[in-house]
C-alpha cells in the first residue's frame, strides 16, 4: 500500500505491506534507527515517538494508522545546527542514561510529559513516566533531568 507522512519535518512516502508496524517503517524504510525496539510488546516505551504531537509507542501501531500524520522521532528533536533540545541537554547534564537503550523513548516521552504537565513535581514525573522502562539507571537521574528540563522548556 502507498503511505505518506511527514517525518521530522520532511515529507516521506513509500510502498509498504499493510501489516508493517510504524516502528518498522521508521527504522527499516526510513533508516531512522534512533527509535529503539526493546520489547515489541508495548511494555517498555523504547519505541516512543510523537504522532501528531502525542507520545505513542510505535511498536504497537500500524504504519497505515499514521497515514498523513506528522511524526517526530528522536532524530527530529535537536535543531538543524546540532543544538540539543533542552530535554536531551538535561539528560546529558544530569547523567540520565547509562547504556542509552531506553533513552530515545524516555526523552520523547518526557517531552510530551512536560508539554502536558508544565513544571511537574517529582511524583508526577515518576507516575507519568511509568510507560518507559530503564534497566540501568534506577530512574533517579532521569527524574532529575526531566525536572531540570521542565524549567527550560
Amino acid at each position: 500500500m502507498k503511505i505518506s507522512m511527514t517525518v521530522n519535518g520532511k515529507p516521506v512516502s513509500a510502498e509498504v505491506e499493510a501489516r508493517t508496524l510504524l516502528v518498522t517503517f521508521i527504522r527499516e524504510n526510513l533508516r531512522l534507527t534512533g527509535t529503539h525496539v526493546g520489547c515489541d510488546t508495548s511494555q517498555c516505551g523504547a519505541c516512543t515517538i510523537h504522532l501528531n504531537g502525542r507520545a505513542v509507542k510505535s511498536c504497537n501501531i500500524l504504519a497505515m494508522q499514521a497515514e498523513g500524520a506528522d511524526i517526530v522521532t528522536i532524530e527530529g528533536l535537536a535543531k538543524a545546527d546540532g543544538t540539543l533540545h533542552p530535554m536531551q541537554e538535561a539528560f546529558r547534564e544530569h547523567h540520565g542514561l547509562q547504556c542509552g537503550f531506553c533513552t530515545p523513548g524516555m526523552v520523547m516521552s518526557a517531552v510530551d510529559l512536560v508539554k502536558n504537565h508544565p513544571n511537574p513535581s517529582e511524583e508526577t514525573i515518576r507516575a507519568e513516566l511509568d510507560g518507559n522502562l530503564c534497566r540501568c539507571t534506577g530512574y533517579h537521574n532521569i527524574v532529575k533531568a526531566v525536572k531540570a528540563a521542565s524549567a527550560k522548556m
Binding site: 516505551g45 505513542v56 504497537n60 501501531i61 516521552s109 502536558n116 507519568e128 510507560g131
Partner: peptide, 9 residues
C-alpha cells in the same frame, strides 16, 4: 489506564 502512551492511542 495503562501509561501515557497507551492513553494517547
Amino acid at each position: 489506564i495503562g501509561d501515557r502512551m497507551v492513553r494517547n492511542m
